[in-house]
């Protein structure tokens, strides 16, 4: 009994001693040291060799570490230098870790260099998880919001919209951005997407909204076609003028004095020049407004406040 009591009592100073030594160690640890200097991850290809079949488990451990690392770097206000390394290692060990791909797009959106690395991770995700719509969707946001690359964003959203179980959103975003790219072919692609959205809209309200988008995109496509024709018209006239000048010089004739006008007086001249088959009418059967001065083609006011079309660029203001 006495031995037991003595043993129990000896535990108290021992525990106190251990606690003191622990506190001593803690006082020597510099908790404010730059977190970036403390991160040390083995290259993923070597780490993969050492997991012995527990790749997903090791990826989870790194995931937990990554969250701690991000938080520590955030609070220390130091750049998160190792984010790419973490994400690359995690997704190499566990190629199906969808959340890691998606979060990389959020956490690495600080600067252009980081964004490019995040896009690398997302591209890896698209390859490893071809069924996921969220990965290209996230890619689209990075291109659009961080790199301001409307075309690549639209392409990423379009890829997302084609994945199984994808909701309507990526398709609508792709349609919106393709239309904004100011290119006739992409505008037509956008029109097709809006038309699909219109066909698939389940409710009357959504159908009406999709219809407005479709009609506005139709107008945008027509205007882009007309503007391209006007630009081509000016180029053709300029080329013809240069040819005339060259021929007169060659034949030693007097050069023509008045260059042909690069601006057509009516849109019909575009048809006559073979640049258009016919002059399009807007979806309500009304002609587009052509202003020779400033070479502008605009749509007539819409029955609603334009949703997609930038009014100053596309729609004439009622006088």
């Amino acid at each position: 009994m006495l031995t037991r009591l003595l043993l129990a009592l000896s535990f108290v100073p021992l525990a106190w001693g251990i606690h003191q030594s622990h506190m001593e160690v803690r006082s020597k640890v510099d908790f404010k040291a730059n977190i970036n200097q403390e991160v040390n991850i083995a290259p993923p290809q070597y780490l993969q060799l050492l997991t012995f079949g527990h790749d997903a488990f090791v990826a989870d451990i790194l995931w937990l570490q990554l969250i701690q690392y991000y938080g520590a770097a955030y609070y220390q206000d130091v750049p998160q230098e190792h984010l790419y390394r973490y994400f690359d290692t995690i997704t190499t060990l566990d190629p199906d870790f969808e959340m890691a791909y998606l979060i990389s797009g959020f956490l690495m959106a600080d600067n252009k260099k980081q964004v490019e690395l995040a896009l690398k991770i997302l591209a890896k995700g698209e390859k490893n998880m071809p069924e996921s719509w969220q990965i290209p969707h996230q890619e689209g946001f990075l291109y659009y919001l961080q790199l301001k690359d409307t075309l690549k964003a639209a392409q990423a959203f379009e890829r997302a919209s084609k994945k199984p179980n994808a909701p309507e959103l990526p398709s609508l975003l792709a349609a919106q951005l393709y239309r904004r790219s100011n290119d006739v072919e992409r505008c037509v692609l956008s029109l097709r997407m809006w038309d699909n959205a219109y066909q698939a809209s389940p409710t009357k309200e959504l159908k009406e909204r999709a219809k407005r988008h479709t009609l506005e995109t139709q107008i945008a496509c027509d205007l882009l076609t007309l503007r391209k024709a006007l630009s081509d018209y000016a180029n053709i006239r300029e080329q013809r003028w240069q040819t005339q000048l060259a021929e007169s010089k060659k034949n030693k004739q007097r050069p023509p004095t008045n260059p042909p006008s690069a601006v057509p007086s009516t849109l019909q001249e575009l048809v006559n020049a073979g640049l258009l088959r016919q002059i399009p009418l807007d979806p309500f059967g009304r002609p587009y407004i052509y202003r020779q001065q400033g070479l502008k083609v605009l749509a007539q006011p819409l029955p609603w406040k334009p949703v997609d079309l930038k009014a100053t660029d596309f729609v004439s203001t009622p006088k």
């Binding site: 527990h54 488990f57 989870d60």
Partner: peptide
Amino acid sequence: LADLSLGQQGRLVVDLGLSSISI
């Protein structure tokens, strides 16, 4: 640990559980 996993609780439980049983 699941609480620290940023929405990956299920994955963590499965991976940690299966690896523990295996090891």
